[in-house]
Design a protein around this nucleic acid. Structure first.
Length: 213
DNA sequence: TGGGCGATTGGCT
DNA sequence: GCCAATCGCCCAC
């Protein structure tokens, strides 16, 4: 039974925890990597000062305003990509940030992608040894493990033809842990982060740090 | 039109 | 724990 678009058209605070335990699977020439989602955050456009959609629609955040089940990929800090799944009914700009997962398929490929020299260390050529739990631990790492870049923005996760698909996986039936979202300046008090308790792949919490000068 | 800053990460002290 | 890397977005000029 595939994931149904109507199940993603509900309010984002319901959709976000329901994604825990689901699987994201991407196949390319290089091979296949699949990740079981262990940590997410909800972003509720018009009511949420922490959301990219808070100040209205732009070219970047357009996918958030469309129908649910599509990939919203954005570029940040000049070097990282993060991925969201659009949620809520068409026209309502909400999305779920995928913050972490457990690699369940394509471990070698994920390891190879993550072991490549990161942009921030481009002056040194190094092969990094990375623990399995860290392969997709954090939103930008998750994108690297799956090979997601801006090209994937707007991809339909529920289409059979899509290179990247959202699959039911093994549903998480327990109670998700909740807490404030990571690294936000605005609306830092809203407990809209959800994760599977005890999962080693869940990223550590970090509060927003104002920039020094 | 320019500049401050971000849903981050990895390396180094 | 501290900090640099690096660039596109967006809003105040």
């Amino acid at each position: 039974m595939p994931v149904r678009r109507t199940s993603l058209a509900r309010p984002v605070l319901e959709v976000a925890p329901s994604l825990l335990g689901m699987v994201l699977r991407r196949t390319t020439d290089e091979g296949t990597v699949a990740v079981r989602i262990t940590e997410v955050e909800a972003y509720d456009g018009p009511n949420d000062p922490g959301s990219h959609a808070y100040r209205g629609q732009t070219a970047r955040n357009a996918v958030m305003f469309g129908p649910p089940g599509f990939l919203y990929v954005y570029f940040t800090y000049g070097m990282h990509f993060c991925m969201n799944i659009s949620a809520g009914p068409d026209g309502q700009p909400s999305a779920v940030l995928l913050r972490a997962g457990e690699v369940t398929e394509g471990l070698a490929l994920a390891r190879s992608r993550r072991g490549a020299t990161p942009p921030a260390a481009s002056t040194t050529v190094k092969t990094r040894r990375i623990a399995d739990r860290d392969l997709a631990r954090g939103p930008a790492r998750l994108c690297v493990a799956l090979g997601i870049t801006r090209d994937a923005n707007g991809a339909d996760l529920l289409s059979r033809d899509s290179a990247i698909q959202l699959l039911p996986g093994t549903p998480f039936t327990g109670s998700p842990a909740t807490g404030p979202r990571v690294g936000l300046r605005e609306a830092a008090d809203r407990p809209w982060r959800f994760w599977i308790p005890g999962e080693p792949s869940v990223s550590p919490y970090k509060p927003h740090v104002p920039k020094r000068r």
